[in-house]
Lab assay of single mutants.
Amino acid sequence: MQRVNMIMAESPGLITICLLGYLLSAECTVFLDHENANKILNRPKRYNSGKLEEFVQGNLERECMEEKCSFEEAREVFENTERTTEFWKQYVDGDQCESNPCLNGGSCKDDINSYECWCPFGFEGKNCELDVTCNIKNGRCEQFCKNSADNKVVCSCTEGYRLAENQKSCEPAVPFPCGRVSVSQTSKLTRAETVFPDVDYVNSTEAETILDNITQSTQSFNDFTRVVGGEDAKPGQFPWQVVLNGKVDAFCGGSIVNEKWIVTAAHCVETGVKITVVAGEHNIEETEHTEQKRNVIRIIPHHNYNAAINKYNHDIALLELDEPLVLNSYVTPICIADKEYTNIFLKFGSGYVSGWGRVFHKGRSALVLQYLRVPLVDRATCLRSTKFTIYNNMFCAGFHEGGRDSCQGDSGGPHVTEVEGTSFLTGIISWGEECAMKGKYGIYTKVSRYVNWIKEKTKLT
């Protein structure tokens, strides 16, 4: 034993070699072989497995989906700052455009905790909710729209109204504003409101030439003092309507412009014939205590009207009353817009006519005020429907199939267009061939041609 100890002390290297040989010859039971080890760690190889990531292109799944990435790591994937920024906006807080917040056709661009709407022409605001041009839906104005110097929408209202708090709607500024039905039992019968379409306001006024200088022999019209197929109006439903009495009662109609003036057809009036105007009328054979009678003290036909040349060209006249009318729910003026808007309103496509005229061709006159909704007829169809001249200051309205029309005794009465609950004068009943005849239409004086003249002559002093 002493000898062994001496050998170990003198030859430590020998001992180490012996131990190493023993270990190498022993069977290893701690580690699995290569094949079995792979069965336990069965993990798919990654895209760049075996390579240094710093030297390969980034992978979106590896960089940002398996674990949260930084902007720089995302930049490695896209290799483009702009594309990385677009991805980053949604990656950080989701897609803010998912709810489609942009209105009126706006395009949404996502941002971090926010979004941006790219608005089409005519709109602005956070969600493109603000109209900035009158060309689109009248700028959301209830009545009139004008573009300011910086191309912003400025709404306005006709006389007797003021802008509401929203700067879009119009509200009454006087007790009985024009064009409004205020009798409670008839307010439910107000005709369907007309909503502004998209309009090209630059070209809204037709490029028409008034044929002022045409000389033409007097034409022989049949029954051209021209509501057939209409309905009984309720008291106060058309408070701007008046009836004219002269040699015979209810020979023509008219509309209240203001307390002192009536507008009617020029062919209705004769110099030297006494005319009485009755406002607030409903049943011409009954006294309903809503009527107001006034005498006409002055007749002003349009300066281009000449019955000797043509009885229905420039067929418009103004009547001055001896005493002002007292405005109330049964006696209310009709609204008159400017030339541009009167023309736009007419193009809405349908209007209402009213009167006490004959209820059928050569038949009896109506006792109760009649009204009828009539569609506008395109000019080409209008011209083809008659052998008589249709001037540019006239328009056609009615039904091709016949059966409904204005008729004798309705002449001078109103053709009105309702705009968001307020009625505007767009025409004056003038003439036609018979009444409600198939293929024939009622012919009306186009008020847009005469609004400046009306307003100039009827100013209240």
Rank of each mutant, 00 (worst) to 15 (best):
Q2K: 06
Q2C: 10
V4A: 12
N5A: 09
M6Y: 08
M6K: 15
S11E: 03
G13T: 12
G13D: 03
I17Q: 00
C18T: 03
L19T: 04
L19P: 01
Y22M: 15
Y22F: 12
Y22I: 15
Y22S: 05
L23Y: 05
C28T: 05
T29I: 10
L32T: 06
H34L: 04
E35L: 04
N36F: 07
K39N: 07
K39C: 06
K39T: 11
L41D: 15
Y47D: 09
N48R: 05
S49F: 06
G50I: 07
L52C: 15
E53D: 06
Q57W: 04
L60E: 14
L60N: 15
R62A: 08
R62E: 09
R62D: 04
E66W: 03
E67K: 04
S70I: 04
F71V: 15
E72T: 15
E73H: 11
F78H: 14
F78D: 12
E79V: 09
E79M: 09
E82S: 15
E82I: 10
R83D: 07
T84M: 03
T85N: 07
T85L: 09
E86A: 15
E86M: 15
E86V: 15
F87M: 15
K89L: 04
K89M: 08
Q90M: 05
G94C: 10
D95S: 14
D95W: 10
Q96V: 13
C97N: 03
E98C: 07
E98W: 09
N100A: 05
N100I: 05
P101M: 11
P101H: 14
N104F: 08
C108W: 02
C108K: 03
I112S: 15
I112F: 11
I112R: 13
I112P: 15
Y115W: 14
E116A: 13
P120I: 06
F121I: 04
F121M: 11
F123I: 13
E124T: 09
L130G: 09
D131L: 08
T133V: 05
C134A: 02
N135K: 11
N135D: 13
K137N: 07
N138E: 11
R140M: 05
R140V: 10
Q143D: 00
Q143R: 00
Q143P: 00
F144H: 01
C145R: 02
K146H: 04
N147R: 12
N147A: 09
N147H: 09
S148G: 10
S148H: 10
A149I: 09
V153G: 12
V153F: 11
V154Y: 08
V154I: 07
C155W: 00
C155Q: 00
C157R: 00
C157S: 00
T158K: 02
G160I: 00
Y161M: 03
Y161Q: 02
R162G: 03
L163G: 01
A164R: 07
A164P: 02
E165G: 11
E165W: 11
K168S: 05
K168F: 13
S169N: 08
S169Q: 07
V174W: 04
P175M: 07
S182D: 05
S182W: 07
S184K: 10
Q185L: 08
Q185V: 07
T186L: 06
S187I: 10
L189K: 10
L189A: 09
R191Y: 03
A192H: 07
E193Y: 11
E193H: 11
V195S: 05
F196C: 15
F196D: 11
D200I: 08
E208F: 04
T209C: 14
D212F: 10
D212A: 07
N213F: 07
I214M: 05
T215E: 10
Q216T: 08
S217R: 07
S220M: 06
S220D: 11
D223N: 06
V227Q: 09
V227I: 09
G229M: 13
E231R: 12
D232A: 07
A233T: 09
K234P: 06
Q237F: 10
W240E: 00
Q241D: 03
Q241A: 12
V243Q: 11
L244P: 00
V248S: 10
D249L: 07
A250V: 08
A250P: 09
A250W: 06
F251L: 06
C252P: 01
G253T: 10
G253W: 07
S255P: 00
S255M: 04
S255Q: 02
I256D: 00
V257N: 00
V257F: 01
N258G: 03
E259C: 03
E259T: 06
I262N: 00
A265G: 03
A266V: 02
H267M: 02
C268N: 01
C268D: 01
C268P: 01
V269K: 01
T271D: 06
T271V: 06
T271N: 11
K274G: 11
K274V: 07
K274I: 08
K274L: 07
I275P: 05
I275V: 08
I275W: 09
T276K: 08
T276M: 05
V277D: 00
V277R: 00
V278Y: 04
V278A: 06
A279S: 02
E281P: 09
E281H: 10
H282C: 04
H282S: 11
N283W: 06
N283Y: 11
I284N: 09
T287N: 14
K293W: 07
K293N: 09
N295R: 10
N295K: 10
V296S: 02
V296G: 01
V296P: 02
I297F: 04
I297D: 03
I297K: 13
I297Y: 04
I300G: 00
P301I: 05
H303Y: 13
N304S: 12
Y305G: 02
Y305H: 07
N306R: 10
A307C: 05
A307M: 10
A308M: 09
A308W: 04
I309N: 13
D315F: 01
D315H: 00
L318F: 01
L321I: 08
E323G: 04
L327Y: 03
N328F: 01
S329T: 13
T332A: 10
I334G: 00
I336T: 02
A337K: 01
K339F: 09
E340T: 15
E340F: 08
E340R: 14
T342Y: 03
T342N: 04
F345P: 02
L346M: 06
G349M: 08
G351K: 02
G351W: 01
V353F: 04
S354T: 13
S354I: 15
G355Y: 15
W356V: 12
R358F: 14
V359W: 13
V359H: 12
F360H: 13
H361T: 12
R364T: 13
S365Y: 14
S365V: 13
A366T: 08
L367M: 07
L367S: 07
L367Y: 14
Q370R: 12
Y371V: 14
Y371C: 11
L372C: 14
L372D: 14
L372M: 14
R373A: 15
V374T: 10
D378C: 04
R379I: 15
R379K: 13
A380F: 12
T381Q: 13
T381G: 07
T381L: 11
C382H: 02
C382E: 02
C382S: 02
C382N: 02
R384Q: 14
R384T: 15
S385D: 13
S385H: 15
T386S: 15
T386K: 08
T386H: 14
K387D: 15
K387E: 15
K387N: 15
T389E: 15
I390E: 10
N393V: 03
M394H: 15
F395K: 01
F395Q: 01
C396V: 02
C396H: 02
G398W: 03
H400M: 11
E401S: 12
G403S: 14
G403I: 15
S406W: 12
C407E: 03
Q408N: 05
Q408I: 12
G409H: 14
S411K: 13
S411D: 15
G412P: 06
V419F: 13
E420T: 14
E420F: 15
T422S: 05
S423L: 13
S423K: 13
S430M: 06
S430G: 07
E434V: 14
M437N: 04
M437G: 14
K440Y: 14
I443A: 12
I443L: 10
T445G: 02
Y450S: 02
V451S: 14
N452F: 04
N452W: 04
N452M: 08
N452Q: 13
K455V: 08
E456M: 06
E456D: 13
K457Y: 12
K459S: 12
K459V: 09
K459H: 15
L460N: 08
T461K: 13
T461N: 14
